[in-house]
Design a protein around this nucleic acid. Structure first.
Length: 502
RNA sequence: GGUCGGGUGGCCGAGCGGCUAGGCAGAGGUCUGCAAAACCUCGUACAGCGGUUCAAAUCCGCUUCCGACCUCCA
């Protein structure tokens, strides 16, 4: 490859050449789910996006420490002042379970879904309830440094002070200090514990009925939602690390407040590069559980949804996601999924073709060798350009045409050396499986089972070849038709008959 | 209302000053017993109106439509 990795930094709003703090190592933190209900497809898209980032960084040879948390406490519905209820606590009440049962139930569900989408497990998956002492310690540091104040057992971060003193509150999400200050005048009358509307709770005194609570220097209570990410990222990745990721919708207030907390506690901002994945749209609107505009992965797989005409496999969905850049919104529709399904199959069949295709090129390099070498450099360049999966995928399809032409005899391997051919095969395979994280669903389904089936199919194909040699077309067609009914397609080519599952 | 991001061919989506991706669908052809697959060729684009430029989908301005965030959300 010819290029260096460039990543779009939400903080600077520019693509920057990526240089890790420690050569050869990358520290990456991504905000995980709040485990109070099942993940929907929009959640999955974000984790697939960062899975690609994780995979590609590893492919480049970096030793990556990837931390992705699970939020199991402190995430309130609404505001603290308006008596917001903890999401897990509420769910626990509704399902008549312990909050930890809720957390466990939906964490397991989340993991299952990640496995189904072939999302790699992060290096560390810390949970908020497992890091209460660290969070209390951080609150204390923020208080000691004068960036927070205590009221009636709750502790609030003083955003106005931070904004005025350091001038970086609002930098990430594009909010202005002047607006904050202007707001504060109107707010003086409010009978609020907070000094300023943009202040946020970092420790919340628990109401008597609140199920999850811990002792602290200020009250029996629980940590604010934003605090866990600051505490856990600092613990596992240090005060400053390379990449912080998450969904676009977390930029404000969650990430902005994280920056404030880290600054308040450590005097520096946590991440050098901020990456934000864009939303998955359904009916032209953001997929969201709270307004009911969402689709669950199960519905997608089974096709049992008013938005779909049929079901789609996890890898088709993953392929579908890869066709769009992570910073663009992606509109889910049945038509688009059908197109993705065919594209995915075409790619997988080309992979199988390439595996079986013998080398028939030359000892000396010619024009074609040069073309293939340029192609190999090209796919890497696309990924280096802020993980441009749609472009890299487009490049893969350029090679699909070439593979099929070699096989079909429309193109020879003239001028192609074996070394280049080997590299082509390796690159093609690596991109599909290791970097894009796709799986060959047709070939899956058990190696033993597949061998048996393949043996049977070879027998049937041989017998049908005899029938065809006698020009008994009706018998040959009948075999083909019956097989089609059970989902097996026969393709008669020059070199014989091939079979594949529909 | 404030801040930001969009409107690209039948659909999904790249591109973001000159070389006009890719997938799916459509048309014609090659191959084949037929079919399928594959291959080759081909339409139909850059929301509208102005402007800058030798050159604009790409830059600037206005209009219009859509979305995100500003309150929990990946």
């Amino acid at each position: 490859m010819n290029s260096e990795l460039k990543i779009y930094n939400s903080l600077s709003k520019e693509k920057e050449v990526f240089r890790p703090i420690h050569p050869g190592r990358v520290g990456m933190y991504v905000c995980g789910p709040t485990v109070y209900s099942n993940v929907h497809l929009g959640n999955c898209r974000t984790f697939v996006s960062f899975d690609i980032v994780y995979r590609y960084l590893q492919f480049l040879g970096y030793k990556v420490r990837y931390v992705r948390n699970v939020t199991d406490v402190g995430h309130l519905e609404g505001d603290v002042d308006t008596g917001g209820e903890d999401k897990l606590g509420k769910r626990a009440r509704l399902e008549e379970l312990q909050p930890m049962e809720i957390a466990h139930k939906y964490t397991v569900g989340f993991h299952d879904m990640m496995r189904i989408f072939n999302v790699l497990s992060p290096s560390i998956e810390p949970r908020a309830t497992g890091h209460i002492p660290e969070q209390i310690e951080m609150v204390q540091q923020i208080l000691d440094n004068g960036y927070a104040y205590e009221v009636n057992g709750s502790v609030y971060f003083d955003t106005l002070k931070f904004a005025e003193k350091d001038g970086i509150y609002g930098e990430l999400s594009g909010r202005k200090i002047e607006d904050l200050i202007a707001e504060s005048r109107d707010n003086l009358k409010k009978q609020d514990e907070k000094r300023h509307p943009s202040d946020f709770a970092i420790w919340i005194k628990a109401a008597p009925e609140h199920l999850m609570h811990w002792d602290s220097p200020w009250s029996v209570g629980f940590p604010g939602w934003h605090l866990e990410c600051s505490a856990m990222s600092t613990k596992y990745l240090g005060k400053t690390f390379d990449i912080h990721g998450g969904g676009n919708d977390l930029k404000f207030p969650h990430h902005e407040n994280e920056v404030a907390q880290n600054y308040g506690a450590c005097g520096c901002t946590p991440a050098r590069t901020w990456m934000h994945g864009n939303m998955l749209l359904l009916n032209g609107k953001k997929m969201s559980k709270s307004d009911g505009n969402s689709i669950m992965p199960e519905e997608l797989f089974t096709g049992k949804s008013s938005h779909l005409t049929k079901g789609y496999t996890p890898m088709v969905v993953r392929f579908f996601m890869l066709q769009t850049h992570y910073r663009s919104t992606l509109d889910l529709s049945d038509d688009a999924l059908q197109a993705a399904e065919k594209g995915y199959r075409r790619l997988m069949e080309a992979y199988a073709t390439l595996q079986a295709l013998p080398f028939s090129g030359d000892a000396t390099a010619g024009v074609q060798d040069q073309e293939v070498r340029e192609w190999i450099a090209g796919v890497h360049d696309e990924m280096n350009d802020d993980f441009n999966t749609p472009k890299a995928l487009a490049r893969l399809f350029e090679i699909v045409s070439r593979i099929n032409s070699w096989k079909g005899g429309q193109l020879s391997m003239e001028g192609l050396t074996e070394a280049t051919y080997t590299e082509l095969k390796a690159t093609f395979t690596t991109f599909i499986f290791d970097i894009f994280g796709l799986q060959d669903e047709a070939a899956a389904g058990g190696d033993d089972g597949f061998k048996t089936l393949d043996g049977l199919m070879q027998l049937i194909i041989d017998m049908r070849a005899d029938v065809r040699a006698r020009k008994d077309w009706s018998a040959a067609d009948k075999i083909r038709d019956v097989l089609k009914e059970v989902g097996i397609v026969l393709k008669d080519g020059k070199e014989g008959t091939e079979w594949s599952k529909e």
